[in-house]
Nucleic acid binder design. Structure first.
Length: 509
RNA sequence: GAGAAUAUAGCUCAGUCGGUAGAGCAUCUGCCUUUUAAGCAGAGGGUCGAAGGUUCGAGUCCUUCUAUUCUCACCA
């Protein structure tokens, strides 16, 4: 695409709406170039970052530093000026005096705007009012900004930072995340933490000797979860493909192949509704470990969340959705049957579909007459129990109909060895002892495909190649899926998934 | 999918009963060599989300549409 082409309407020049401020900045860009100042030079030698200058400052020892960043505030006072420069780590005040930088350089400075990126060389000092600053000896323009950034002003009152005119339009913040990141420092911190959480998990897993792998996103048959997929088309092969809804079936093939532990940070895609807990594309880390079961996996998950919280927050408790949550192990464990007994006062064990349905009706739950007993239990749980589980809780031993890929419970017929981790009333993890009997797995998938024929769009499809892999023999195995976005929400205290994804899905402008 | 709210200057927001489009910040001009929501004096800046309608007259009332936000539904 040529630079001036309109992406929405190829062939047409792009309509850049020019307001007065942009016009002026464009003229300034030309004016600077004509007067011999390159508005976009190639490099600048940075020696210091704002945060380290401030931490290492000593009153009687000035230090020569080169810093670079974006101009965020300007206070011009005739022949001297102050401005704040924002670099990757924070802000530092710069003091610029005409006598020090020279007439022409000072004239150039006076043309600059908030939003321009500059480099400054100077020495550190503390102003009359006590702010650690850099006294500029040289400065240079590094990149001219053509669009005015939203200016939020800050004032400290009794140590409390008060922000005026903050850039707060949520739509604009999501659409122009780059601006959000420039002007709202907390946003940047959330994403730095997100990266730290992912790094921590990667280290936690590889430290055990498990292998990080990559498996297909474009799949001819989707599986591993109950969800509607996105479809796409491969032209050369002229075939329909699906964007993965999970990578479970591929990772298990790798366990068959002889790896003892594999994991993948997977972007998954589900063609479903959008709300503050769901984005159409989201990140899930899935982990499979041979010769282990779900009991073992629960201990691992406790450690994972506890250590991750300590690593990124230096603290084992968080505030999530308005609740104080402690991530100190052990987490409470409760079978789904016991949880319903506790929160609804009813005993669902050994009840048939008819009895369960009337119990649900007594609780005031309207149910689709087509759904079977496992799904009824899930509905009761989802409606009356899950929202009440604020502290981290493992809910275990789900009805077998809901879990076609999990192994039947070793001592409870009709249930599987499965757990979910719930915190703040929301599911964060799902895990089971993986079903590795290929004959039973085939039966379960075929039962799913019957549900599918009856109109359940989320029922799974029989994946013959996956079954073939199991027929070669898969060791006993524990599997885990962690919703990374939700885990980041929990550990950063964000109430919406949109605040932990840089570019959440929005309709086109 | 349903309901509620929102959409006015680059940003944050006022706009009363339908009668000339407002403020602060930002921008521009002038003054100002340790300021910090810098200050002082002046100036410019608007297709009031889009399209229809009612009316002598619509930012304001009505209809439709678009987008967003929140809640609910759906959703491992």
């Amino acid at each position: 695409m040529t630079p001036n082409e309109n992406p929405q309407n190829p062939g047409q020049p792009q309509q850049i709406s020019l307001n007065d401020q942009m016009k002026r900045r464009l003229e300034e860009r030309l004016h600077l170039a004509e007067s011999g100042v390159n508005p976009y030079p190639c490099h600048f030698d940075v020696t210091h970052f704002s945060d380290s200058i401030i931490t290492n400052f000593e009153d009687d020892a000035t230090e020569t530093v080169s810093v670079a960043g974006r101009i965020m505030t300007i206070r011009k006072m005739g022949k001297a000026s102050f401005f704040h420069l924002q670099d990757a780590n924070g802000r530092i005040q710069i003091y610029l005096k005409k006598d020090d930088v020279g007439e022409s350089s000072y004239q150039t400075f006076k043309l600059l705007d908030i939003g321009d990126i500059v480099g400054v060389k100077g020495y550190t000092f503390k102003t009359k009012t006590g702010e650690i600053s850099v006294h500029a000896q040289e400065f240079s323009l590094l990149s001219k900004s053509l669009r005015p950034i939203p200016i939020a002003k800050e004032k400290e009152i009794d140590g409390q930072k008060v922000v005026y005119d903050a850039f707060s339009d949520k739509e604009l913040r999501y659409r122009q995340r780059y601006v959000d990141l420039i002007v709202n420092p907390d946003v940047k911190q959330t994403f730095i933490k997100r990266s730290a959480i992912v790094s921590f998990m990667r280290g936690f897993f590889t430290g055990q000797g498990w292998l990080e792998v990559e498996t297909p996103i474009l799949q001819p048959i989707y599986g591993g979860a109950a969800a509607r997929p996105f479809t796409t088309h491969h032209n050369a092969l002229d075939m329909q493909l699906y964007l993965r809804i999970a990578n479970e079936l591929y990772l298990k093939r790798l366990i068959v192949g002889g790896f003892d532990g594999v994991f993948e940070f997977a972007k998954d895609f589900r063609n479903e509704g959008i709300d503050r807990f769901h984005n159409p594309e989201f990140t899930q880390v899935e982990l499979y470990v041979a010769y282990k079961d779900y009991e073992w996996m629960m201990k691992l998950v406790e450690e994972l969340f506890y250590q991750a919280a300590c690593a990124v927050n230096n603290c084992d408790s968080v505030v999530f959705l308005g609740n104080d949550i402690s991530l100190k192990p052990p987490f409470r464990r409760l079978t789904i049957t016991d949880s319903i007994k506790e929160y609804c006062g009813i005993d669902i064990s050994d009840k048939d579909e008819h009895e369960l349905r009337s119990m649900a009706r007594d609780l005031g739950l309207e149910l689709d007459p087509k759904i079977s007993s496992g799904k009824i239990i899930d509905e009761i749980f989802g409606e009356f129990v899950e929202p009440k589980l604020i502290q981290p809780t493992f809910i275990t031993d789900y009805p077998i109909e809901m879990s076609p890929l999990a192994k039947e419970h070793r001592s409870k017929p009709g249930f599987v060895e499965r757990f979910e981790l719930i915190a703040g009333g929301k599911e964060l993890c799902n895990s089971f002892s993986e079903l590795n009997d290929p004959v039973i797995q085939r039966e379960r998938l075929e039962a799913q495909s019957k549900l599918r024929q009856r109109g359940d769009e989320e029922a799974m499809i029989v994946d013959e190649d996956f079954l073939r892999a199991l027929e070669y023999g898969m060791p006993p195995c524990a599997g885990l899926g962690v919703g990374v976005d939700r885990m980041v929400m929990l550990l950063t205290g964000q109430d919406s998934i949109r605040d932990v994804i840089f570019f959440p899905h929005l309709k086109p402008e």
